[in-house]
Write a protein that binds this DNA or RNA. Structure first.
Lengths: 353, 353
DNA sequence: TTGTAAGCGTTATCAA
DNA sequence: TTGATAACGCTTACAA
């Protein structure tokens, strides 16, 4: 509880007494209910009084207490945003678009960096529940089912990114990795490539598995006789370099390689160049994600774009729908990935059969 | 106000009634005051009752309502974090360390991306005040004085990043750009460079001006007779490329260039390589910031590190101090930048006098 | 069209 | 060592 000093001598710095709705009401000569109604547009108020109230709000520099509001109304304007690692170049744009979409709608974003740590995520989910968040955007790459249950129990609207399925209070953004991979393989085969290798991500990421499967499926379709080599990586730059060296050491060099993400692709490129291979003359490379640095690479990297701005925007759209209409089931939004052709791909040097 | 359906038939999904402190108190056979005290450790409670209360909390799956807490106590555990553009590679690590530091201390971070937009920042500051945030970390590169006043009026603890000065409720993290630049110039001159150019950032960024001045001062110290060329950039990749082309078009090529940030440095490198200059054999390059991609560049970029992890950590330390001891004046923390020597610098080809 | 007043779920002051 | 209970600042039936 707070105390206001009464009868104290005027201090050096005027202790700007917090102005409450009551003060505004008094200043405008109306009741607090009326003030509340003009603020929330929750009931008709005559133009004249509304004007008066608005003026009073301005004059008093009244900023409503969000906590009191939330307590009384049972809702808050806070959204929880969980990401695995904001320093991973995939996330900043996603976060940016989500923040923007929330801002527009008057929501504030609590940023949560799980660091791929389930315990941390759990702690945080608890805090979000305590904050009575309006919704949660789960943009992490993996997820503890216990968390989901917790959220579901408390009826917190949630939107996932390629996790779980849509249902009550839960929407899902389904990014279609396969179509992008398919486009990449198609692009490469129509360029004339017959030997295409793949550098995959780690199996504990569903996205890595999906991309590898999609790659294999596409190759099977376009090059039924090919037996493409798969190299393992961990989605990080250095593992791209390592994979590149394995590729260089192989009996037969592929003419193109599809890499499961851009970070690794950049590593692959660097190592190939170190080995005096010219990209794309000697070997073509396709990445995945289309992080900002893909376009800045040398040569600019052909890659499959995972449209993060759109993902974020649509995720919040879906979330807001569930927030506003909790009775309606969550929705599922499918977002395609697509190939961005730049300069790291070209026809192979010699078309071997 | 909420309504609980009374006497309704058991619905399909059990509508988990929100459990309040009162319920816990009843379950533990104590008063709400006691429960509150064990939660907040705000008064001594006998071991036995504490145990009982803790159990009750667990059993009821009680999550205290943060808004009710904030309303009653007048404080919140929310911190506002303003950044200019989270997609700018400088920020993610800063955000990450700030989020981590806040998490440890039980605070939640509201992320605000100003997009260099003063209006947006102002709107947000208003929201933060409404949320009665415990403090604000202003990590933007520029700042509207009106915002600061607003915050100061409301007695909101603030920590800046190279803006304003420490004072009541305001701490300041002062990153010493000059020592890093000095180290860079020293490094270059001791390598034998005599012709060093600078690619500067835009004048409306104080950081750009400071770096340029520091560069000029250092060159004046080490090479009193040199008249270093200054090229203008805007801190973005493409402006680095443009600057590189201007440099290439100049009458005399410098043997080294100090670039005001890594993004531009990367652009400079790319263009130099396109012009068949070998780095560092033909020309040395030093960047600034030490973003992740600096180390991954080819060759790895020598650069001045602005230790973002530390900046974030110290910023929150300072902020927490003001939050806990509002009566004490804010503090000023000086953080040095330092040179990270990698492979983009080497002795010049021929030492011209 | 506006006002009255009962909550919302805590904290914190007193008293016991 | 614990318990009653009055705030905290707002929203929202309900009354006028």
């Amino acid at each position: 509880m707070k105390k206001t000093v009464k009868g104290a001598p005027p201090p050096t710095v005027v202790p700007l007494a917090p102005v409450r709705i009551k003060d505004v009401a008094r200043a405008a000569g109306v009741s607090t209910a009326t003030v509340s109604h003009v603020i929330n547009k929750t009931k008709y108020v005559s133009d004249e009084t509304r004007e008066r109230v608005l003026q009073a709000i301005d004059q008093c520099r009244y900023y409503p207490n969000a906590h009191a509001r939330s307590l009384a109304s049972g809702r808050s304007h806070i959204v929880g945003l969980l990401v695995s690692d904001i320093a991973n170049p995939f996330f900043p744009e996603l976060v940016k678009s989500i923040e923007a979409a929330c801002f527009e709608r008057g929501y504030n974003v609590i940023l949560i960096n799980t660091n791929y740590d389930a315990k941390r995520a759990a702690d945080y989910v608890r805090r979000l529940i305590e904050l009575k968040v309006a919704g949660v955007a789960l943009m992490t790459s993996e997820l503890d089912p216990a968390l989901i249950d917790e959220l579901a129990d408390r009826r917190v609207p949630v939107v996932f990114h390629n996790l779980g399925t849509a249902g009550a209070y839960m929407s899902n953004i389904l990014v279609d990795y396969a179509v992008g991979i398919e486009a990449a393989v198609h692009h490469l085969t129509s360029l004339g490539h017959r030997q295409i290798a793949h550098v995959a991500g780690p199996d504990h990421f569903r996205s890595a598995v999906i991309r590898r499967e999609a790659f294999l499926a596409s190759v099977a379709r376009y090059l039924p006789n090919a037996r493409p080599a798969i190299y393992d990586g961990d989605f990080k730059f250095d593992s791209g370099r390592r994979a590149a060296n394995e590729i260089l050491a192989a009996a037969e060099l592929p003419t193109a390689v599809v890499v499961a993400n851009d970070m690794m692709a950049l590593g692959v490129m660097q190592e190939f160049r170190a080995a005096r291979l010219s990209i794309p003359r000697d070997i073509s490379i396709v990445g995945f994600d289309d992080i900002a640095f893909a376009a800045l690479a040398d040569p600019p990297l052909t890659t499959v774009c995972s449209p993060r701005m759109e993902i974020g925007r649509r995720a919040i759209e879906a979330l807001m729908q569930t927030i506003e209409r909790p009775e309606q089931p969550g929705i599922e939004i499918r977002i395609p990935t697509y190939l961005v052709t730049r300069n790291s791909t070209a026809p192979p040097r010699k078309n071997k059969k």
